[in-house]
Design a protein around this nucleic acid. Structure first.
Length: 451
DNA sequence: CTTATTACCTGTCTTTGT
DNA sequence: ATTCACAAAGACAGGTAA
């Protein structure tokens, strides 16, 4: 444990909403809600004006609309947020090289890494103010709240105490008494489930937690969580600030506007998701051995199915093939509201194909001319690639009753807009059918024989 | 009515090594 | 060749959290 409050936690205030207000002055001073705008959307960030009406992060957009109908409801613009985030993080790194981003709008900074030591509360307050000024300058006026203390735990809790635009520095040596009167839920890692279990043991505040016997705590919440909580309750926290943390999994998931029962449509979606996961793996120079398919049923129960390959891959065809099999093993029941594909057990080295040379051959692409006047159901299957002269590349989501529904995907807007065409639309002329998968990657169940 | 993404933990099996 | 014992490691599914 260090002797000065040299760990900072910086949290940009209502980040997504603040960026929108910055870029669109007419929104300033007004309630702004950023998040999913569809029927099943949820709120990512609400501006402080919207929070007055009880709009909160993670609330369904439907509920937000009923609480605050006159707010501006905006879909997220991640590229813009990423850009501002980068600029802000750069200011932090100018202050100290040891910066650990937690998300686009949050980071820890360890001031000792820049050679500072023996910092007083006043020193740190001045540093925090300077940082906030710098952030405001590079970001076009965004404000941040900063907490500082002798550990990540204290810094993180402190940054929450004077929002927005605040600075809270907790003097070294006062940590346990600082925490004691607070609810246990202020401790990161104590969510609803843990809070419930603790409350059954009569523990509501950190002071209660400080008095609870460690063995009893472990009985309630498990060994790993229990012993770490026992230490955090008395502010014993020596977790280092770590920059450049390694990615451990890459995944994509999508909640559908309406539940899907059609297995062939699910397969088509899983194929798309496998491709996106593979692209991201390749971009990050990663490959992984475990493929996971996640399904969320109409009743919100969630299931995962996973399979581990003999060696790591970043090949979309391999991922898609495993995902298909896992999907086949999954129940569809009364419909699926969410589907996801992920890859984990990552290796930072790319798979060397030792004996599978011809496998990178391009998948056969067949251009098929449609009949001039198709009637119903003319050879459209979910997953077919399709070209449209105005909208570009899309793929068939479904068809029937003289219409074809096509989903267009761009790198920017992954699920992409859905458009429906009459099946005899002259613009729908070319359908690309990507050939079925060919090659093989050995999976777990290979036969190994020993001498 | 209830997002998307990542990380980590736990209980239960299964595999591997000796 | 088969079995047992035992530990360590890995795989898998579900849960919790930010």
């Amino acid at each position: 444990m260090r002797g000065d409050p040299s760990v900072l936690h910086v949290d940009l205030d209502a980040f997504f909403a603040a960026v929108e207000q910055r870029d669109k002055p007419s929104l300033r001073g007004k309630p702004v809600v950023v998040g999913g705008v569809g029927v099943r959307g949820v709120v990512s960030t609400a501006s402080y004006e919207a929070r007055k009406y009880g709009v909160r992060s993670a609330m369904s957009t439907a509920e937000a609309r009923s609480r605050c109908p006159h707010a501006a409801y905006l879909g997220p613009r991640f590229e813009v947020y990423r850009q501002s985030s980068r600029a802000v993080m750069a200011e932090m790194r100018a202050l100290s090289p040891l910066v650990e981003p937690l998300s686009l709008d949050e980071a820890f900074i360890d001031l000792t890494a820049s050679g500072l030591s023996g910092l007083t509360v006043d020193d740190v307050e001045a540093i925090a103010q300077d940082l906030k000024d710098a952030i405001r300058k590079v970001s076009g006026g965004l404000t941040a709240s900063v907490g500082a203390g002798t550990s990540k735990l204290i810094a993180k809790i402190a940054s929450d105490l004077d929002k927005p635009d605040g600075v809270v520095v907790v003097p070294a040596g006062t940590e346990a008494e600082f925490l004691a009167p607070m609810q246990v839920t202020v401790i990161p890692g104590v969510g609803p489930a843990t809070a419930q279990r603790l409350s059954m043991a009569g523990v509501r505040t950190v002071a209660d937690l400080q008095q609870l016997d460690e063995d009893e705590l472990i009985r309630q919440v498990g060994s790993a969580h229990g012993s770490s909580l026992h230490r955090l309750a008395v502010a014993a926290d020596d977790r280092p600030v770590v920059s450049d943390r390694e990615t451990k999994s890459v995944s994509v998931e999508d909640t559908f506007e309406t539940d899907i029962i059609d297995r062939s449509l699910l397969v088509a979606i899983a194929d798309r998701m496998s491709l996106r996961v593979a692209e991201r793996l390749q971009k990050a120079q990663l490959s992984g051995r475990t493929v996971t398919v996640k399904t969320r049923m109409h009743d919100f129960t969630t299931h995962t199915r996973s399979s581990t390959l003999a060696g790591p891959t970043d090949d979309s065809r391999v991922i898609a093939r495993v995902a298909r099999r896992l999907l086949e093993e999954s129940e569809v029941g009364g419909g699926i509201r969410l589907l996801g594909v992920g890859v984990s057990s990552l290796a930072d080295w790319i798979q060397d194909d030792l004996f599978t040379e011809d496998e990178h051959a391009e998948a056969p692409v067949e251009i098929v001319e449609l009949p001039a006047r198709p009637r119903d159901q003319l050879g459209f299957h979910p997953g077919q690639d399709i070209a449209h002269p105005d909208y570009g590349q899309g793929w068939v989501w479904g068809s029937g009753r003289g219409r074809v529904t096509v989903r267009f995907e761009t790198a920017d807007t992954p699920p992409g807009p859905v458009r429906t065409f009459a099946i005899d639309d002259p613009a729908l002329t070319k359908v690309r059918i990507i050939g079925a998968d060919a090659d093989d990657e050995p999976e777990t169940d290979q036969n190994v024989s020993n001498e």
